[in-house]
Design a protein around this nucleic acid. Structure first.
Lengths: 188, 188
DNA sequence: ACCGTTGGCCAACACCTGTTGGCAACGGTA
DNA sequence: TACCGTTGCCAACAGGTGTTGGCCAACGGT
C-alpha cells in the first residue's frame, strides 16, 4: 500500500502548502497549527497525525533546494549577475525561502536549517567557481555573498523597505550583481 | 513630583534593560512578560503598570538612535568604511538593534519601527552625503546600503553563519566598505 | 505621630497553544 | 454481506500567555 496513491496524499499536500504560506507570512511561533489546518480545510488533529508535531511539520515545509547551477562552466565575469538573478527566480517562485528567513530569526531549529542549506548548497558551488582564486576561503566568500543576498530578501520581502520594494528587479540586479561578483571572485 | 527622581526609576530601568535583552535573544513573541519580569527581579504586574502592555514595552525598548555622524564633512572616498565601522560600533555596544532585527521579522509594529528608523535617520544622512550625485535617488541608495548592512547583522548576530562569525571585524569592514561606498556615492 | 501616596506582590481571569484519545463514516476486500 | 484499515472530526487536557484588581507594607511630608 505504501507505493500506491492514497486518498490522504491530497490532504498531506494541502497541509504542507498551507504550512509554507503561514510560516512565510507569520514566522514560526505566530503560525499556529489551528490556522494552518483551517487554511487546509482540515481538522488540527490531522496535522498532528500526518506530521507528528509542529517542529516536524516545519522541517517538512522548510525542505528547500536552492537549485544553484554549476558556476564553473559559466562565463567567469558574469557570476554575480547569474547568482543574483537566480535568487530572484528562486524566491519569487517559492515562498519557502521567505518562510525560512522569517522563522530563522526566532526559531533555533530554523536557523540551523538555514545554516545547513547555505553551507551544503552555496558553499560547494562557490568553492568550485572560486577555484584558483587567492585570498579568502570559499566559505568566507560564500558567507559574504549570503549576507548581501539575505539582506536583500530581508529588506525587500520581510521588512518591506519602501525604496527596495519600489526598485525593479533588473535595477536591483544591476546594483547588487557587482557586489556578489566581488565577494565570489575578486581579491581585496 | 514629576520632575524629581522617583524610587521607581531604578525598577523602570531594570525592566527596560531586561526587556531589551529578552527581545534581542528571543524575538517578540518568545520574549514573555513573565521572563522579562523575572530577569528584572520584579513581579509581572509591575511591567504592566509601568508600560501598559507588551506592545508599548517593546516600543519603549526599541527606541533606538543610529547616531550616524554627518557624512557631508568627511572625506568623500572613505564614506563606506566610516559607515560600516560605525554600525559595528553601534550594534556591539547596544543590543537594541539586534532586538529590533529579530522582532521585525515577525512583528508588524517592529517592522514599521525599523522602516521609520532607517527612513528618518539613514535617509537624510545619505541625502546630504550624496548631494550632486547623479543616478538613483538618496532613498534608493540608503535602501541598498541598508540591505547590505542588515544582511551582515543578520548573518553574523542572528543566524550566526560560521564563516561570517569567524571573520574579524576589520576583515569584514575591508570587504563590505567598498560595497557601501558604491551604493552611497557611485553610479552604475 | 499621623495618613495619603507610592511601590510591590499575589491570585486569578479569559484566552490561546500544542497535543491526545475516542468515535463515526468511508471503501476496498474476502 | 461482513470485515477492517483508513480518513476524518470532536472534545478535551495541561500548560502557558497577556492582563487585571485587590491587598499590604513602606515611605515621606505635615
Amino acid at each position: 500500500m505504501t507505493d500506491s496513491v492514497r486518498r490522504s496524499d491530497a490532504t498531506r499536500a494541502a497541509i504542507l502548502r498551507a504550512a509554507r504560506e503561514r510560516f512565510a507570512a507569520d514566522g514560526y511561533e505566530r503560525a499556529t497549527i489551528r490556522a494552518i489546518a483551517a487554511d487546509a480545510a482540515i481538522d488540527p488533529s490531522m496535522v498532528m497525525r500526518y506530521y507528528g508535531n509542529k517542529e516536524r511539520l516545519f522541517a517538512a515545509a522548510a525542505d528547500f533546494d536552492l537549485r544553484l547551477p554549476d558556476l564553473a562552466g559559466l562565463p567567469h565575469h558574469a557570476l554575480g549577475e547569474i547568482v543574483v538573478a537566480h535568487f530572484f527566480d528562486r524566491w519569487d517562485g517559492d515562498e519557502t525561502l521567505i518562510a525560512l528567513l522569517r522563522a530563522g530569526t526566532t526559531n533555533p531549529a530554523a536557523a540551523e536549517r538555514m545554516r545547513e542549506i547555505f553551507a551544503s548548497q552555496l558553499g560547494p558551488v562557490v568553492a568550485r567557481a572560486a577555484r584558483g582564486a587567492t585570498g579568502p576561503t570559499a566559505e568566507q566568500r560564500a558567507g559574504l555573498a549570503a549576507s548581501q543576498i539575505l539582506g536583500l530578501a530581508l529588506t525587500r520581502y520581510v521588512l518591506r523597505f519602501a525604496p527596495v520594494v519600489a526598485l525593479r528587479r533588473d535595477e536591483l540586479v544591476a546594483w547588487v550583481a557587482p557586489t556578489i561578483q566581488r565577494y565570489l571572485a575578486e581579491d581585496l
